[in-house]
Amino acid sequence: MNATQWVRLIGIGLLAAGLAACAPKPPPLPTYPASIGAPPRSILVIPVVNTSTEVEAADAFLATLAVPLAERGYYVFPTTMVKRVMEDDGLGDADMVHAADTKRLAEIFGADAVLYAKITDWNSRYIVLAVSTSVAIQYDLRLGSTGHTIWQENTHFTHTVGPQNSGGGIIGALVAGAVAAAIERAAPAYVPLASMANAQAMLSHQSKLPPGPYYKAPQQ
């Protein structure tokens, strides 16, 4: 056995050990109750209602929703196109769309289910010398045929950037805090945080969202 083969073998061994170590037995997947009838195959994501103070949050968050729902195994209607088509049909206002009849919305697009998402927090707070960014989302999936809720979840994620221990006295700490604030402003952590919220709600082992028809257990 030459050196290359050894390296390869060690690599395979490490990989196998790593996989074994980080593959806990997943809990059983949630399922829809039989009472809802045929489980939904497709999800229409409608524009997001935003009660936070950040005006741009709704669109930024809408852009994060298709991927986790598709990865959960659903057909997801093209979110950007749906938004534009709704605007053309006079349904440009998210509050109005959320107030509309679910059955009618589902019928227009031929969707089995409709996802209502609401942002309740999307904020960066300057706390002493650090910046704390948080997002909070309410998800509500309704069945197109009845309008009844078949899954709902509330998530809240916070991310803090700031000097852990600041050398250089109070001035140094203030500078570090200001730098942290500038970083958060320049590259807001909102979208990554929102993506984490989605993953927790829809893709994690804790998720109560039953998988869709195209779901496959993650391959290691």
Partner: peptide, 10 residues
């Protein structure tokens, strides 16, 4: 842990 990251559907 890149080795543990589950591969997505797409």
């Amino acid at each position: 842990l890149a080795g543990c990251a589950p591969k997505g559907l797409y």
